[in-house]
């Protein structure tokens, strides 16, 4: 595999922001050096500030700025109304889709090419090849898988399938039908009062020793630590990864994009980048999954050195 320069993608906003904030955010994204932008609500079907047409308006803006736009679908499809909405998104006729639930995979497969998000369990070559036969054109490595597994899968990657990894952001670890944000306010889910609007980066959950541990984001549970693979960039390039995903946060996302872009295109050292990113990362970073360890672990690398033969 040839070391190549990966593209940068911006994942869907996982939190609930107000409409103006979202529009402002994507106006900045349009000016940023990110190559691919994933748009849409992937966490909770009750979050309806943004209508489909709002997302399509943003999509046009981003396309005009030269970005590839993908529409991301809801991660947990339960209700009939969610299924109908999913169907209409799949039939949008213009933008490619990121399937985040097998319902979406079923609707898209054998009809159009599609992308799978990190919550679709592609853990082995059998699964990867099967989905490729039915229209998979890009997959995001499930977040708990290691570089060893990725390396094995890259060796058997079907033709014309691109590999994307979750490179920077708080890890979406679990999905429930229950809303933990509503629970924290003693509210039932059906009367949640959209309290997740109050937490632009989710609600921090700490252990009883006050260590930041997880982040409650509605029905989604995230890591408190931010996954940051900047120190592993050389290995990632050697594995032929096509796309690096950055997951939006309310602060510094554009700075993070610029820093990582500079590493890829302007010879910025990953050492310098790591230091700058660390200062912009709220409750510490982790890269354990990449190294085959507990996800919360942080494995130090010898930065910016040639790692030939390390894998």
């Amino acid at each position: 595999m040839q070391a190549s320069t990966p593209k940068l993608s911006l994942g869907p906003i996982l939190y609930y922001w107000d409409r103006d904030t979202i529009f402002d955010f994507y106006e900045q994204v349009a000016q940023s050096p990110v190559d691919i932008v994933y748009l849409g609500e992937t966490v909770c079907s009750k979050r309806r500030i943004m209508k489909d047409d709002d997302w399509f308006e943003i999509a046009s803006l981003l396309e005009a700025a030269g970005k590839e736009v993908i529409i991301s679908t809801l991660t947990l499809i339960e209700a009939g109304s969610e299924l109908s909405k999913l169907k209409s998104l799949c039939d949008n006729g213009k933008y490619a889709l990121e399937a985040n639930d097998m319902a979406a995979v079923n609707l898209l497969s054998d009809k159009q090419t599609f992308i799978t998000g990190p919550a679709i369990n592609i853990y082995n070559a059998g699964t990867l090849k099967f989905l490729a036969k039915h229209g998979l054109k890009r997959w995001v490595l499930p977040i708990e898988l290691s570089k060893e597994t990725l390396s094995d899968l890259q060796n058997e990657l079907p033709e014309n399938v691109e590999t994307e990894i979750f490179f920077y952001g708080r890890l979406p670890l679990a999905f429930s039908a229950r809303c933990f944000t509503a629970r924290s306010h003693n509210l039932p889910k059906d009367d949640c009062q959209y309290r997740c609007l109050e937490d632009a980066d989710g609600l921090l959950l700490k252990t009883r020793e006050e260590d930041p541990f997880l982040v409650l984001n509605g029905i989604q549970t995230q890591s408190a630590k931010t996954c940051n693979l900047i120190a592993d960039l050389d290995e990632i390039k050697k594995l032929g990864v096509d796309i690096l995903r950055i997951s939006p946060q309310s602060k510094a996302t554009l700075d993070i994009i610029n820093i990582i872009h500079a590493c890829l295109h302007d010879n910025k050292s990953t050492q310098d980048a790591a230091e700058e990113i660390e200062n912009l990362t709220p409750t510490g970073s982790c890269n354990g999954y990449w190294h085959g360890d507990a996800g919360m672990d942080s494995v130090k690398q010898h930065l910016s050195k040639n790692k030939a033969g390390l894998l």
């Binding site: 853990y123 977040i143 708990e144 999905f175 919360m296």
Partner: peptide, 21 residues
């Protein structure tokens, strides 16, 4: 399980081992 089975990585985040893996 309050989380959707097959889509919960809390255990591997803390221990490196999950129901999936």
């Amino acid at each position: 399980c309050v989380m959707v089975e097959g889509r919960c990585l809390l255990s591997s985040y803390v221990t490196g081992q999950s129901p999936n893996t």
